[in-house]
Computed example of a mutant assay.
Amino acid sequence: MTSTDIGIDLGTASILVYAKGKGIVLKEPSVVAYDKDTNKIRAVGEEARMMIGRTPGNIVAVRPLRQGVISDFEVTEKMLKYFISKAMGRKAFRKPRISICVPSGVTAVEKKAVEEATYQAGAREVAIIEEPIAAAIGAGIDITRPFGNMIVDIGGGTTDVAVISLGGTVVATSIKVAGDNFDDAIMRYVRKKHNLMIGEPTAEDVKVKIGSVYPMPQPKVMEIKGRNTITGLPKTVALTSEEIREALKDATSQIMETIHSVLEKTPPELAADVADRGIVLTGGGALLGGLEQLIEEETGINTVVAEEPTLAVAIGTGEYMELMSKMDKTL
């Protein structure tokens, strides 16, 4: 294997690139700003994210991936090309072997689109990996052994719940309820309850700072600014973590239902393993306050958050090729 092997976590909210021997070499939002008049890309990643909701008419800041799926093929391809060359640096002579991650619920057509975009962006070889498997590897679980492990990966666009054994998924479900839905729910709640319009970045800020899905001994408070929907003037409101819990109720109950349904479909031997070994949470959504307590309370199964939940999928994607070649040798 050459040093040009890279793993890409193609997320709805952010893109992470893992290079063999170097670890995570790039982490940027999956946002592209382009000029509608000339169709030229003006900015990619963090620079483009700063432009969301703040651009003049001719410049649009878009997220080309919606709910883990490519919604704009051309822009995704350009974005991938940009990130790959940025991660590889100028010195790369050989085209890289790229393993890239997709949510477990994507269709064959969507998988093909990701593969195609990666080849177009300059890959020599492409391996498509399902998100829960990558998340499990990145969380440090040895997926090659005949034990059941349960992974709940909450990203920006999708939540993947899977039971993994012997290097493959035994039962898996992917739902389009994740970080973005949490943001939307907060925006809706604030509009309804406080007559205040806030943007996506503010909602995300609230979620990160005071977001909670489980009663806290000491509720947190945060002041936010937005536009009053009645007067149209700027207005400041104090939000509490209890209110955010209320706002996120629907989204979290959908995730809980998915966990229950995956557990119900799991073969008894593997279900016993999961009860022993616990549930592992990965993805940015795993950082939501009180999530592990909520899952533990509802399932009765010990739940932990992976060490680096936001990096787990990217690390797992990068290590997947090595792991599979080891498995082939032992078989």
Results as ranks from 00 to 15, higher is better:
residue 225 K to Q: 14
residue 3 S to W: 03
residue 53 G to A: 01
residue 11 G to P: 05
residue 168 G to E: 11
residue 327 M to K: 14
residue 37 D to K: 11
residue 14 S to Y: 02
residue 77 E to R: 14
residue 290 G to R: 05
residue 32 V to Q: 03
residue 86 K to Q: 14
residue 27 K to M: 02
residue 307 E to H: 09
residue 193 K to R: 15
residue 231 T to V: 06
residue 47 E to S: 15
residue 62 V to L: 12
residue 293 Q to P: 04
residue 241 S to G: 10
residue 211 G to C: 10
residue 325 S to H: 13
residue 265 K to A: 14
residue 22 K to M: 11
residue 179 G to H: 06
residue 233 L to V: 11
residue 171 V to N: 09
residue 165 S to V: 01
residue 132 P to H: 01
residue 97 R to P: 10
residue 97 R to W: 05
residue 40 K to E: 15
residue 232 G to A: 03
residue 47 E to F: 01
residue 30 S to R: 07
residue 188 R to W: 10
residue 40 K to Q: 11
residue 243 E to C: 12
residue 95 K to N: 08
residue 304 V to E: 13
residue 254 Q to N: 14
residue 150 M to W: 01
residue 39 N to F: 03
residue 31 V to L: 13
residue 40 K to I: 03
residue 134 A to Y: 12
residue 302 N to S: 06
residue 30 S to G: 01
residue 117 A to C: 05
residue 240 T to M: 04
residue 182 F to S: 13
residue 27 K to D: 05
residue 94 R to E: 15
residue 157 G to Q: 10
residue 146 P to D: 13
residue 68 G to Y: 04
residue 200 E to Q: 14
residue 32 V to S: 08
residue 107 T to M: 04
residue 91 K to Y: 15
residue 296 E to K: 04
residue 221 V to K: 15
residue 326 K to C: 05
residue 183 D to V: 01
residue 185 A to P: 06
residue 2 T to I: 15
residue 119 Y to G: 10
residue 227 R to H: 04
residue 175 I to C: 09
residue 202 T to F: 07
residue 134 A to G: 09
residue 203 A to K: 06
residue 163 V to Y: 12
residue 142 D to G: 08
residue 185 A to D: 15
residue 297 E to Y: 07
residue 160 D to Y: 00
residue 234 P to N: 06
residue 9 D to R: 01
residue 247 A to D: 01
residue 45 G to R: 02
residue 247 A to V: 02
residue 59 I to H: 11
residue 139 A to T: 01
residue 76 T to W: 12
residue 172 A to C: 08
residue 94 R to K: 15
residue 53 G to I: 04
residue 209 K to H: 13
residue 266 T to D: 04
residue 36 K to H: 00
residue 112 K to I: 01
residue 309 P to H: 05
residue 261 S to G: 00
residue 189 Y to Q: 14
residue 282 T to W: 00
residue 19 A to Q: 13
residue 298 E to D: 11
residue 82 Y to S: 15
residue 129 I to W: 07
residue 39 N to W: 02
residue 280 V to F: 02
residue 38 T to V: 10
residue 231 T to H: 09
residue 146 P to Y: 06
residue 53 G to D: 01
residue 281 L to Y: 03
residue 321 M to D: 10
residue 158 T to F: 13
residue 251 A to H: 10
residue 15 I to S: 03
residue 58 N to K: 14
residue 31 V to Y: 06
residue 79 M to L: 14
residue 302 N to H: 10
residue 237 V to I: 14
residue 123 A to I: 02
residue 294 L to Q: 06
residue 261 S to L: 02
residue 20 K to T: 09
residue 302 N to E: 09
residue 6 I to M: 12
